[in-house]
Structure formats: structure tokens, C-alpha cells
Amino acid sequence: MLAGKVAVVTGAGRGIGREIALGMAAEGAAVIVNDIGAALDGQGADASPAQQAVDDIHAAGGQAAASYDSVADWDAAQRIVQSAVDTFGRIDIVVNSAGILRDAIFHKMEPAEWDAVLKVHLYGAFHMSRAAAPHFRAQGSGSYVHMVSTSGLIGSIGQANYAAAKLGIAGLSRSLAMDMSRFGVRSNCIAPHAFSRMIESVPGASPEEKAANLEKRRKQTRADQIAPLAVFLASDAAAGVSGQIFGARGNEVYLYSQPRPIRTLHRGDGWTPESLAAQLPAAWKSSLTPLERTRDVFGWEAI
């Protein structure tokens, strides 16, 4: 499905990014495997994860090259995209999968924790998307696939920085889809469920709960189950699909709604704070979105 195409996949040394890179290579794409090889909090660097993914693609008969630049840096993102053009002659697909975590309950979150996460996720998605945009525009085609999260779409505890970044990416994708549609370019998001090292670190479960559920959920929600959706969205088979948010969990795929007005109140002589207080809470009580976490919304087991 991706024969003749060139993809850049960020965060592709491990987890979901790695499986997407392998999946795209298996469908014929030449892949730039980008990963600095940092720890989960973004510290350090290790070339081996990206190189191992490249080696595995080569062993399967595919084409790939490694990139170790950081998406958090504007100039580095330019080099990542240029490496695709220099190595394989063009660029057709950008998958924004690179990410880090700096979880903290909000009243204890430090500015450095906020900045680090937004730099990799939100700024990284912008840097990579913007670097590819002139190439996509010139050739009249291209596809962006961004990893978002239910932490932003639904809610999570102790992840204000991550949630804000991921919901920001959803807005970025929607704008890309609109701005770039005249050039034949599409942009979509995936909110993945897969028990990678990032998901396993999310707060909210006790050590006992994690131990009891970990092995089962690792088998039910795997990173390789996300890759088919990403491959499809990057392919010409998804030519009519843009500006959407999808989910993938186990063998399920689903489409998210996006914010639209659901209730209205009109008052001919206008509103005051007092009249709003008298009417709005009772009128809209049943329609207010509850403070739920992802596990509250997804009340069924993945199969």
C-alpha cells in the first residue's frame, strides 16, 4: 500500500513508533527511523534503538535509514526531513510519534516539566510538520499522522503537560488538514492504546493493580496493533480522510467525535450572572461532561 513512498517516523526506536516504522516498511515505504534514544523523561541519548529498528527493516527486505536528531529543535527537524530527501529522493509521510513524560500532580508541576513535554510533543509535531510542508506543497501530495492521547481527549490525573500537548496536536492536525488540503495533503490523528513503556508509567494504578493486569493487557493491547491504522491513513486508500481523530485499542478501531455545540439557551433581553445561575445549571446538568478518566470511559476489555 505504500510502494514508492518515503516516510519519516519519529520516536521510532521503540514502542508504537517502531511498530509503525516496521509496518510502513513492510508495505513498501522507505523509512527514516528517527529516535534520539532517550529515557522516558527525555534524558540521555542512545543510538541503538533506532539502529536496531533499521537493521530489522533491512533484515525483512525493506529500506530504512536512522536519524538521531531531536524533534524539539527547529533546525534538527529540518535535518530529519532533509535526510529523507537526500537518502530516498522525496518525502510523502510524516508520523509524529516521538514523546516523553514528566508526570506530576498539577500543584507540584514545575515549569521545566511543562516546557520539556510541550517541546517534544507539540513543538515537535509543529517542527516536523512544518519542515515537510514545502515538500508536500511542491509535489501536491502528502500525509501527516499524529499520535495524540486520551489524556487530552478525555482526561488523566497528573498529566496536565502531556494532556495539553496532545490536545494541542489535535488542533494542529485539524488546522493542517484545512490549510494544506488545496495541495492534496491530509492530516489525521490516532489516540493509541498499547502497553508500551510510556503507557505503563501512567499514574493512577497501585503496584498491585499493575502487576495483576500488566501481562494480560500487554497481550490484549499491543503496539503492533496500532500500526495498520497508521499505514492505512498514510496510504492513498485514505485519500478522502482528513482532519479526523481515530483510536486503536487491541483489535478495535474507532472514530472520535470533535467538539461541537450540543445545547443552547437563548434569552431575548440578554444574560446576567444571576439569570445564568438561575437557569443554566438545572437546564444543562444532564449534558455536562463528567470528570472522567480514560478507564472510566472505556469500561470494556479490549479484545
Rank of each mutant, 00 (worst) to 15 (best):
Y254A: 01
H266R: 14
G243A: 07
T272V: 01
T272S: 15
R263Q: 14
P261D: 13
S242G: 07
I262F: 13
A248E: 05
V253T: 12
L255K: 13
A248H: 02
P261N: 12
L265H: 08
A248T: 00
Q258P: 07
G268K: 10
T264A: 15
L255M: 11
E252F: 02
P261F: 12
P259E: 07
I245L: 14
G243N: 00
A248K: 02
G270Q: 12
G268Y: 00
P259T: 07
L265S: 04
R260A: 13
G250W: 14
G268V: 03
V241Y: 05
A248R: 04
R263M: 11
G240R: 03
G240A: 04
R267V: 01
T264H: 15
I262T: 15
W271K: 01
A248P: 05
S242C: 02
R260G: 06
P261Y: 12
T272L: 03
I245C: 10
D269Y: 02
V253D: 01
S257N: 09
R267K: 15
G247M: 02
P259L: 02
G240H: 08
P259C: 09
R263C: 08
Q244P: 07
G247A: 05
N251W: 10
S242Y: 04
Y256P: 01
G247Y: 07
S242N: 01
L265A: 09
A248Y: 03
E252C: 04
E252K: 02
F246P: 06
L255N: 10
G243V: 01
G270T: 11
H266F: 12
G268I: 02
P259I: 02
P259N: 07
E252P: 03
R249H: 02
P259H: 07
V241E: 04
F246R: 05
G270V: 11
G240Y: 08
T264M: 15
G240M: 08
Q258W: 11
G243E: 08
E252D: 15
R267N: 14
R260M: 11
F246T: 00
G270H: 14
R267E: 15
V241C: 00
S242H: 01
Q258H: 05
E252L: 04
P259A: 06
V241N: 04
G270S: 13
I262Q: 14
S257H: 07
I245R: 06
Q244C: 04
I262D: 13
